[in-house]
């Protein structure tokens, strides 16, 4: 289930990136590549496991769905950390300047 959910997140992130391209101020290219990397790796994992061990290709249950949600939330969290650290809108710089002028 987490493979399907991550693939869906990758497709949506790529579509949003393409709408905004060539501008990539909010690093949507990074977000879509994060999702695509995980999607490809899980796809390979599922295919090899299916060939060698058999069983169901997709694990569809509550635990797998919750893992899918956790994966998407974690990827968004990583992306937001990168976004805040790089601060493309300069929000943190502006706040820091405001604090400096208030103190002085």
């Amino acid at each position: 289930m987490w493979l399907i959910m991550t693939a869906l997140a990758a497709v949506i992130a790529t579509a949003i990136w393409y709408v905004k391209a060539p501008e990539d101020k909010y690093k949507l290219g990074l977000l879509s590549l994060l999702f695509w990397g995980a999607t490809i790796m899980w796809l390979v994992d599922h295919v090899i496991a299916y060939i060698t061990e058999g069983g169901e290709f997709f694990e569809i249950n509550l635990d797998a769905t919750l893992l899918g949600v956790a994966v998407i939330v974690f990827a968004l969290f990583v992306w937001e950390i990168v976004l805040v650290v790089s601060d493309p809108k300069g929000v943190l710089k502006k706040s820091a300047k405001k604090v400096e002028t208030t103190v002085s």
Partner: peptide
Amino acid sequence: KLLWGGTIL
């Protein structure tokens, strides 16, 4: 980005 994204997740 592909490798680190996959690795982290």
